[in-house]
Design a protein around this nucleic acid. Structure first.
Lengths: 142, 142
DNA sequence: TTAATAACCTACTATTCCGATAGGTTAATA
DNA sequence: TATTAACCTATCGGAATAGTAGGTTATTAA
């Protein structure tokens, strides 16, 4: 299950990416429009800034703005920062690997084998989707 | 993240499927070999039995046995019973759908769009894998 | 018929994490 | 100098997870 943190984070990034101008966007505005707890969102924005996705400006007219081109922001990166591992089991995680303490042999573990496949297919989808991709409203006819 | 419950459940099913004979297997044996808390595993087995995956026999020589052919048991079914929804967000779940209370319009929600893709790719993998598939040890060279 | 076995049932609990709240501090603008 | 909005620290209730404990029922074998 995706945490609200990640969900809100992606929504906020999308909100900013959809802005016509490049002026900073306030968390209060995003929170209101996306029905997110303001304070909770603030903590998420700080994390996204510290991770290099956003820049911030204080005071009146301040807010958050994108640092990179939306087409350069892969969903894998966003989710890894906000959610943590993409894999459903630590023993198949590429970035957050951890050995199972119950499992003797990963090679013969059925869960391991299966979860590698799930991880790879998920990785493919998230790696192919950038912020630019998910920002555009629905695919319009070809 | 996959719960231990689901992980243990899959391991137990695999353990039984790997048995050479069709005799019932005791939870104590599985628990010991797979390093699972016995009592915890018991509760999982009961659930798998009630869901129609396993049969049970009490008393000496008793235990659990598979009811269906392993090739007929899809991982989607097992995971839906033990873990719940496969989708990462309730609003894209096929079997456990729930509307987000923050989201006004699913169509324009970037998270929604993205998670549909993740769901579909995961579903594909889990739907293509049966208990028979994950039971066999590693693919041997062609 | 009795003892042993193993599934089954109910209840409780410790720990962790999530989502949020509260209240204040710093920096930039008007 | 006042206002604004990011930033920081601390706290907290509730839910879920992963288990523990202790007993009951049904089946088998001696």
């Amino acid at each position: 299950m995706l945490s609200k943190k990640t969900k809100y984070g992606i929504k906020a990034l999308t909100y900013i990416a959809r802005q016509p101008s490049k002026k900073p966007v306030q968390t209060a505005e995003i929170a209101e429009n996306e029905n997110i707890s303001h304070k909770f969102l603030e903590s998420i924005m700080v994390q996204l800034r510290k991770s290099g996705f956003l820049g911030a400006k204080k005071g009146k007219g301040g807010g958050y703005y994108l640092i990179k081109d939306p087409a350069e922001i892969r969903m894998t990166a966003v989710i890894r920062i906000l959610e943590g591992p993409i894999a459903m089991v630590p023993c198949v995680s590429l970035n957050y690997y951890e050995k199972c303490d119950d499992c003797k042999d990963e090679e013969t573990c059925s869960v391991h084998q299966l979860m590698i496949q799930v991880r790879d297919s998920t990785l493919k989808v998230l790696g192919n989707n950038t912020l630019a991709d998910i920002t555009k409203d629905k695919e319009e006819g070809s």
